[in-house]
Design a protein around this nucleic acid. Structure first.
Length: 687
RNA sequence: GCACCCGUAGCUCAGUUGGAUAGAGUGCUUGACUACGAAUCAAGAGGUCAUAGGUUCGAAUCCUGUCGGGUGCACCA
């Protein structure tokens, strides 16, 4: 692939966004100019130019500590000692020559502080959307997330995965990427087998009895995945005392993998019903999928055999003839230096000829990247309330009532999987890169995050007995096998109940249906934000009080801020924003006056923060970190609330000032609404 | 034992590829609603950024040691 020179990309970028030039473009222009200036005028090559947002609004909108760096580089080059402040003085006029720059000042030992032309920026941005619609062109990115074992209800740990994945998808789309969402279904694994053993050998049920049970559960207001949750716990306990059951498990697993038998049919029903339940849970949180690839197809369509052949051809894998791995096909891991019993070469094919999970995962990853040269068959699975379709894989040809979209063939793949699986994910990435060096390791990204654990008090609140040792620890790990966890639907139900009560207090006049709808949006906002405000590598210690809070740093606070902002515009004249834009354009000097001084700094701070949505999204993409956007959304809300308490917008008598306040409030609510939507959080009409 | 992650205010956490006086939320003390919506705002107290060195004009951030915590290291997934 040919590389496009950076300047060409920049100009394309400008072309696409020319009607909505935000701070990101300003920064790029200034950085480029600085680099050129340093090279041409000072004879210094700077590969990276640091830019910083000053700690306070009165210190400017962008700061370059570049003079310090230059002093160092020039000293190395010429041997002469340079004064950073003097260098900064030389640079300042060049930066000042840009039309969007209001002024440049030198601060402290040599910081170059750039102040944008506030009136000019406001006149150009007034009434414009906070985020340009970038369409969704370019190469496709696949994101795999959720991937809950289909043998029980989803708990809060699974929800962290789904919310992270779904939000990252929204962030990628906001940045202009085309994204496909896959939710991998491990329908032939041990966990499904366990529940199947429970149904057959503990409950003595056959497929028809299970179907009858399922129908009965519905009328009783409980659900199939909750029933399986309990059954899974029960079988876990029985395994410890009943050895014959353990034998049944191996037998059952084998039958499920093989397919085309009664046990496999029963397992398919159980797994599919759990998938349906989990999809319902996730849809409550506005989380939807494009495709459900299943492990059964990876087996039955012989994906692994194809991958295995390719790996052997490229000598990425070798057959061990001696030692403890004799008879296994392994992938050599050059980094291993551990002793014999620890972290050695990764086994992909067992000595009995069966493939391990990691082996299957390599084949699946190759398919995602369009490298396998094979494809699944597809069946329409269901249609969401919003009209979006979900497809599932199948091994048999089915008459399609809808055209099947093209799945896979991604240029890049993000796998949202918790950090405990870092090692096998490393093997998958290295394995694929070994077979396709031209594709490289960059094509596979493990978007890893820490687990959700329970605070000891939360575990006790759920009715679990804790030993003294448990209680002395800072957290208790959740365990599906032990049935220890906060079920997602339970938590959402509780949030909705609490929110309903709050809405009732404030808006007793509206219908219960409206209240429920608002309560739902609040519950989603609270839960999603709660899981997003932590950075990925922080263990979330779940605590009911914190998770159920609607005050402080919460999604509800951000929603409330947006609702409040919207209510201003409901009371303003219909064309208030356009009128304000016209007033601003007609009197730039007057606008400058409003934006001067301490009060002006306060107003400008809100506009400036709203202008940083695009760069925040770019930052979130680059670091694969949704928490960055969540923090930004909260900070913008805080800035707006401060502004709101300082200024009476509707009652403002000075026409120009009123126009400025309207334009700034509008840009803030636009950025806030867009940021919340990207976090998967809606803004209710009232709350 | 080996590998990776972490240690920041009483508690829970942010802190952009090294940059200006280390910030939020919460809890505590106090103040502000006949409202552009108090699920809000303001003020106060609260710090040896685990610890000892090193690199640098500049370190919470990079390097090394020490102490403390977490996770992973299956012919499971």
């Amino acid at each position: 692939m040919r590389t496009i020179p950076p300047k060409a990309i920049l100009s394309l970028h400008f072309f696409g966004l020319s009607n909505n030039m935000a701070f990101l473009e300003f920064q790029q222009k200034l950085t480029d100019a600085l680099r050129a200036f340093a090279a041409e005028e000072l004879g210094a090559d700077l590969d990276h130019i640091a830019a910083e947002i000053p700690p306070k609004t009165e210190l400017g909108d962008l700061a370059f500590p570049v003079a310090f760096e230059l002093a160092k580089v020039l000293k190395q080059k010429t041997g002469e000692k340079q004064n950073p402040r003097a260098l900064a003085e030389k640079i300042a006029p060049m930066l000042e020559s840009f039309d969007f720059v209001g002024k440049v000042s030198i601060a402290g030992p040599g910081y170059i502080n750039v102040y944008y032309d506030r009136a000019r920026y406001l006149s150009q941005s007034a009434g414009r959307p906070a985020l340009a619609d970038k369409g969704g062109e370019g190469e496709k990115i696949c994101v795999e997330h959720t991937s809950v074992n289909p043998n029980k209800a989803a708990h809060i740990g699974h929800v962290r995965n789904s919310v992270l994945g779904d939000t990252f998808v929204r962030i990628l789309r906001a940045a202009g990427h085309t994204v496909e969402i896959q939710n991998y279904i491990d329908n032939t694994g041990v966990q499904v087998a366990d529940v199947v053993v429970g149904f057959i050998h503990l409950e003595k049920m056959d497929l028809d009895t299970i179907k009858a049970l399922d129908a009965r559960l519905k009328t009783e207001g409980t659900s199939f995945d909750y029933y399986c949750w309990d059954l899974y716990t029960k079988i876990g306990i029985d395994y410890q005392t009943n050895e014959s059951l353990t034998e049944k498990r191996a037998e059952t697993l084998h039958l499920i993998e093989e397919g085309d038998n009664d046990v496999a049919d029963l397992a398919d029903y159980v797994a599919t019903r759990n998938v349906e339940c989990i999809l319902d849970t996730m849809e409550r949180l506005s989380i939807r999928y494009d495709l459900l690839p299943r492990e059964s197809e990876i087996l039955h369509l012989h994906f692994w055999e194809k991958a295995f052949t390719m790996m052997k051809e490229r000598e990425a894998i070798r057959l061990e003839t001696e030692g403890k791995n004799a008879g296994c096909w392994v992938m050599p891991f050059e980094s291993h230096e551990g002793s014999d019993e620890h972290e050695t070469d990764k086994i992909l094919v067992r000595s009995n000829g069966t493939v391990t999970y990691t082996g299957k995962d390599i084949a699946y990853q190759m398919w995602k990247l369009g490298l396998l040269g094979m494809d699944f068959k597809y069946r329409h699975f269901s249609t969401y309330g919003n009209g979006q379709d979900v497809w599932i894989t199948t091994s048999r040809d089915v008459a399609a009532d809808k055209p099947v979209p093209e799945f896979g063939h991604a240029s890049k793949v993000y796998n949202v999987i918790d950090t405990r699986q870092s090692y096998p994910q490393e093997v998958v990435k290295k394995g694929v890169a070994l077979i396709f060096p031209e594709k490289g390791e960059e094509a596979s990204v493990h978007l890893n995050y820490e687990m959700v654990a329970l605070s000891p008090s939360a575990a006790e609140e759920l009715g679990f007995f804790l030993t003294d040792e448990d209680r002395s620890r800072s957290f208790v790990e959740m365990s599906g096998r032990k049935g220890l966890g906060v079920k997602a639907d339970d938590l959402i139900d509780r949030l909705e109940r609490d929110a309903f009560a709050e809405v009732q207090k404030r808006h007793s006049e509206i219908t219960d249906e409206e209240k429920a709808s608002i309560a739902h949006e609040i519950a989603v906002g609270a839960l999603r934000y709660f899981l997003l405000k932590f950075t990925k590598n922080t263990v979330v210690i779940f605590d009911f009080k914190e998770a159920l809070s609607f005050e402080g740093e919460t999604g509800v606070y951000c929603q409330y801020t947006a609702v409040r902002a919207n209510s201003i515009f409901r009371k303003l004249e219909e064309n208030a924003v356009t009128a304000a834009a016209e007033t601003i354009a007609a009197d730039l000097q007057g606008v400058s006056r409003v934006l001067e001084g301490d009060e002006g700094d306060g107003i400008w701070a809100v506009a400036a923060l709203a202008a940083r949505l695009e760069e925040t999204i770019a930052q979130s993409v680059a670091s694969a970190e949704p928490a960055t956007l969540a923090r930004y959304t909260f900070n913008l809300s805080k800035a707006f609330n401060l502004f709101y308490h300082h200024h009476r917008i509707i009652d403002e008598e000075d026409e120009v000032k009123r126009a400025v306040l309207i334009a700034v409030a509008d840009s803030a609510r636009s950025a806030l609404t867009e940021a919340l939507a990207t976090l998967g959080i809606k803004v209710p009409d009232r709350m």
